Every structure is written in C-alpha cells, then in structure tokens.
Simulated scan of single mutants.
Amino acid sequence: MSSTEENKRIARRYPEEVATGRNVDLIDELETEDFVEHGPFGQETRGPNADKERMREFLAAFPDFEATVEDVIAEGDTVAMRVRLRGTHEGEFMGIEPTGRSFEVQNMVFTRIRDGKVAERWIQPDTFALMQQLGVVELPAA
C-alpha cells in the first residue's frame, strides 16, 4: 500500500471508528502524544486525553451521531476529507440545552499524518447550518 493510501486509511479511522463507531479509546492508538486539533471556533484541543474528553462530551450531546466520509484526497502527509455529519441534539452542546432536533451538515477535515499517526487535524463543519437546524439561529426575513 502506498504511503498516501495508508495515510487515507489512518485519517478515515477517526470519523468511521471513533465518531460513528463510538470507539473513543482508539484515540490513544491513532494520535501522536503532541496531537493538536484546530476547531471551527478557533479553539485547540491538545493531546489524546483532551481529545477523548472532547469527543465523549460531543457524543453525549449527540448520542446517535454519524460521520460518513464522502471524499478523500491525499498528498504528502496531508489527507483532505469531505464528511457528512448527522445527529440528534439530546444533551448539552456548547452551553446550549438539548433541542431534540436533528441535523445533517457537511464538514471539511484536513489531517496531517506523522509516523503512521494523526499529528494534527483542522475541522471546518458548516456550523451556521448546524446551529440553524438545531433552531439556535434563524435567517433574517428577506
């Protein structure tokens, strides 16, 4: 298997096995000790333990969460993925009380692989559509 194909396989494991498969402990195997995730609101998650805590909180807010990888492109040590996210808001999320509403949005993920592990991820979901579908924001009337 080429290194770009192996990098694609490694990058896909997070949305498919950690998020959708609820295997949060797999993060220890997947990520480097100095892992950094750059989130959509400028926040950073540093290290596998912090990432596991963040993911557990997210899955508690959206217990039926699914992440479906739709496209994957790799070059060098970087993998770009287009991922469809779905879930129902049943727990607190970013200080927002559960709405019981479902969402389906697109997400762009760039993953940098180092020595067979995820060293860095940049996450860019369609947060406006997410908040709109959860009923948190509305488009102004035209």
Rank of each mutant, 00 (worst) to 15 (best):
M1H: 10
M1I: 12
S2H: 13
E6A: 14
N7R: 07
A11D: 06
R12D: 00
R12L: 07
Y14F: 15
P15T: 08
P15K: 08
P15H: 06
E16W: 03
V18W: 03
A19P: 00
T20A: 10
T20V: 09
G21S: 10
V24E: 04
E31G: 08
T32I: 10
E33F: 04
D34L: 08
F35P: 01
V36T: 14
E37R: 13
F41S: 08
Q43S: 11
E44G: 03
G47L: 10
G47F: 09
P48F: 11
P48I: 14
A50I: 05
A50K: 06
K52A: 04
E57W: 05
L59F: 07
A60C: 04
A60M: 05
P63W: 11
D64Y: 10
D64M: 07
E66K: 14
A67W: 10
D71E: 15
G76W: 11
G76P: 04
V79G: 09
R86L: 10
R86Q: 14
E90T: 12
G91Q: 08
E92C: 06
F93N: 12
F93Y: 15
F93S: 09
G95L: 13
I96P: 05
T99M: 06
G100K: 11
S102R: 14
N107S: 15
M108Q: 08
M108G: 14
V109F: 03
T111K: 01
R112V: 04
R114A: 14
D115V: 05
D115Q: 12
V118A: 03
V118Y: 00
W122F: 04
W122S: 01
Q124W: 00
P125A: 06
T127V: 13
F128Y: 05
L130F: 03
L130G: 00
L130I: 03
M131F: 14
Q132S: 05
Q133K: 02
Q133P: 09
G135T: 04
L139M: 11
L139C: 01
P140T: 04
